[in-house]
Structure formats: structure tokens, C-alpha cells
Design a protein around this nucleic acid. Structure first.
Lengths: 231, 231
DNA sequence: ACTAATTATTGTTTTTTTTACAATAAGTAA
DNA sequence: TTACTTATTGTAAAAAAAACAATAATTAGT
């Protein structure tokens, strides 16, 4: 039998894939790029690329997302790792997926490097993607939904100021159920939402008040009062 | 500037680390090995090793756990991935941690390959471990605790037959709180626990009845009635 | 300025779940 | 048979969630 040497192990590469979620027009969307490079040329894909041999993973995620889509300063969190031996045609490449939620309107996306296009795509309209990216995307979306119930991350994808209805509709979309408006408002009474002076514009009915989420109040409530977000 | 070539990327390795939890004497324990190999010789560590270039990750986890500790047929689930550039002194090695819960009494552990010893260590007595294994262990324990609340995995570490008190004590240990006995029993009324004819032995008081968890009933309840485990 | 339309916002009652606490039953060992 | 200890069941109070209803506020159009 062939004895495997230590150097035989150091023949792999790894990549990060950045699953970026946003919310607009009542739908959750993911940021995708069109590949302008072998393999899977012209396929749509999650923005991702190989990690430099001496680069830390979170740094790589930031760099790669920026190179491909122009997004800067997006803090991402680790999702899952995908490592089937044949997932990449050019060799053994393990990919670590990262994810983040952003406000679509706060960023300008701009395809660059080897990305031909970059585009927000509704989760209802995801085409066949390169590699195992369909699996990565759906698995990360499951993680997102789980976190929506336990962490106040929805405010990262809502507009900075939002109506309570918009807040509610995001949850109704994600969990595919309608919620009682009155009870929803009672539930969120515990959250540090601060009302602004402004209201909705350009609606032909009583405009709703705009709220924003107070992150500072939230984190001190977590620390001091052992508060736990739960929806 | 030096231009990086595709082959420069294929110079990394990756490993899996198998965090195995068990429960005995009222304490959650982890299975550790003592390393008989460079680097970190004689340090205690989570069982883990490099993955073969064409090996799938779950297979690697099974193989490596078996080689080092003798454990066979332990189904593991993915935890997190750790990839700091300097976490391994011999090169860039990313590690994917897997975890499983097992019944300590069902398995015989036996150190082999380059493991000098293998031993169950209470989570209260974890020494300084090799590499970043302390971080891996505590991060995986957090994941375990989260899952304890939402999935019936505790029965994988309890004896096949257990008293309701043992069941309760496991949760009291994990979440460091005392629970009301009467209320705990009401809560678990929804679970498919089947009473056996036998009772505790060798106790100087009324012995408790032994129960076991019916996995089949559980999974059909999940599918048919949309049942959800929650504690 | 008035009206119709629409939605925001608040309130009340009912039901369910959780919590706290108490009482009883059952088995062991002496 | 008795003392002891724990298992098991029950009940009442408190809190949370769900269902439903009513009122208030604002805009657009006449």
C-alpha cells in the first residue's frame, strides 16, 4: 500500500462563499454574481473565491465580497462548511460559507474582478447556481430563519427607519404565516424600538409612524437585565 | 507585486476534530486523547486528524475517531470551522469540528494509532489542550446546549433506560438551574416516553420507573402532527 | 371644509401555558 | 409494622398568548 506522506495532505485549497441577504418589496433577496471565469462560466453563483494561504477566514470573506460586488465593511458570520470531494472540478476545495444581512438601499453593488454581473435575486427566483451553491444558499437561509427567532438581526435588513407593519411583514414572509397585528405589537413592546418624529409618506391613508431599533439599549438590556430577544 | 498562481492556493490541508460528549455521574464529559506525536506531544486534545485529499468529511470523521479511540458507528454532526492562519504550526490547516453524543457505557474506548491515551474528562476539569482545542470544545458545547433545547438529543447520552429524574438532572446540569419536578413532568408529557416494567435498583427508597425514548413515535409525530420538541 | 376610505393604534375578553406549592402514594430497609 | 425517602399526581394562582373588537388618525378627493 502506498504510504501517504505529510506533504500529500497539503494539496487542498479552500474558499469562502458570502451569502448576503437583503429585503425589499416584501421579499427576501440574495446577492448573486454571474461568473466570468472557468469553471461554470456565466453561471450565477454566490460571491466567493479562494482564500490566500496566510489569510484569516473573516478577512478573506470581506476582501472577496468587496472584490466581486463592491460591498465594503459588511460584517459576516460563519454559516456551514461544505466539503464533498467532487464539489469543485479543479481540485479539492472546501468552502466555508459566511452570511450577512444588509440594507439593500445602503449599498451600491458593482460587479468587478471576474464577476460579470451582480444582482439581488428574490429567494423565489433563484436559478440553477454554480457548484453546490443552491445547497449552500438554502442551508444558509435555514440558518437565517432560525436566527430571526432568537436575535434582533432583522433590523439589519429593514430600512433604518421602518413601520411596525413592515417589521411584521418580514416575519410573515420568512415564516409563511399571517400574524395578528395587535398581538404582534404587544409582543414587541419589550424591544427597544424608538419612535421617530416622521411618518410614512405618499400613502393615501393614515401614515404609520417610523421606528428604529436601538442597538445600544438592546445590548445593555441583554447584559444587565438578562434580556433575551424572542419572536 | 508577486502574482499568485492557482497552484499557490493548493497548499493547504484540513482536518476534522471529533467532539464526543457523554454523561455519567451527573456530569457531561468529553472524550479526549493524549497526543503521542508532534506537535503538542503529550498534550490532551480532541480526537482529530488530517483528512485525505479525496475523502468526504463525514467519512473522515468516522475513520479518525475510530483510529484514535476505537469508537465505531458514531454518527456525528457538523459544528463549526476554525481557520486562523497560525492555529497549526506545520502549515495552514483548517479544521472542521464534528460532534456527537454517545452513551458512555455502550462503548469501550481504546487509544490507538498515535493516541497515547483516551479518556472521558468532565467539562469542569478540562486542562489546557493542544492547538485551539479549548476554543473548539467550548464553542461546540454551546452548540450542544442550544440543541438540547430544540432536539431530543439528550437521549443519546442518557442510558437507554433512564428515570425521569435523571432526565431532569441532565438539563439542570447543562443549564445550571434547578427545575420544579412536578412541572418538568408535565412538560415532558408530550414526549413519546415509554415506561418499562423495570425500576431503579439498589436504592433505599421507592425506586423510580425506568423510561425509554421512542424515536419512531417521535419522528412520525414530527412528520404527521408537526410536533416540535421544546424544553 | 366635509366625506369616504384606509390603516394605525389601543383595549378587552377568553384561552392556554407556566409557575408555585401541596398532598398523596409507593417502595425500601430496619 | 414503622420510619423514611422519593415518586407521582393534583390544584390554584399567575402570566402569557390568542382572538376579537373598537376607536383614532390621516389622506385624497369632492
Amino acid at each position: 500500500m502506498y504510504k501517504i506522506e505529510i506533504n500529500d495532505f497539503f494539496t487542498s485549497a479552500f474558499s469562502v462563499d458570502c451569502v448576503i441577504f437583503g429585503y425589499s418589496d416584501g421579499e427576501i433577496k440574495a446577492l448573486l454574481i454571474q461568473r466570468g471565469m472557468e469553471p461554470y462560466t456565466h453561471f450565477w453563483a454566490i460571491p466567493g473565491d479562494l482564500v490566500y494561504p496566510s489569510e484569516d477566514l473573516p478577512d478573506a470573506a470581506q476582501r472577496i465580497l468587496h472584490e466581486l460586488t463592491g460591498l465594503e465593511n459588511v460584517e459576516m458570520h460563519q454559516s456551514r462548511t461544505f466539503g464533498s470531494p467532487n464539489r469543485h472540478p479543479q481540485g479539492r476545495v472546501i468552502t466555508i460559507s459566511y452570511f450577512a444581512l444588509i440594507r439593500i438601499s445602503d449599498f451600491e453593488i458593482k460587479a468587478s474582478s471576474w464577476a460579470e454581473k451582480a444582482m439581488w435575486v428574490s429567494l423565489n427566483d433563484i436559478p440553477e447556481l454554480a457548484f453546490d451553491h443552491n445547497q449552500i444558499l438554502s442551508s444558509t437561509y435555514e440558518l437565517l430563519k432560525q436566527k430571526l427567532n432568537n436575535e434582533p438581526i432583522c433590523f439589519e435588513m429593514l430600512e433604518q427607519r421602518f413601520t411596525l407593519n413592515e417589521f411584521q411583514q418580514l416575519y410573515e414572509y420568512a415564516f409563511d404565516q399571517t400574524l395578528d397585528k395587535a398581538n404582534f405589537r404587544k409582543k414587541i413592546k419589550a424591544l427597544p424600538l424608538v419612535p421617530s418624529n416622521e411618518s410614512q409618506k405618499n400613502v393615501r391613508h393614515r401614515p404609520a409612524k417610523l421606528f428604529s431599533f436601538d442597538y445600544e439599549k438592546y445590548s445593555s438590556a441583554v447584559q444587565e437585565d438578562n434580556f433575551q430577544f424572542k419572536l
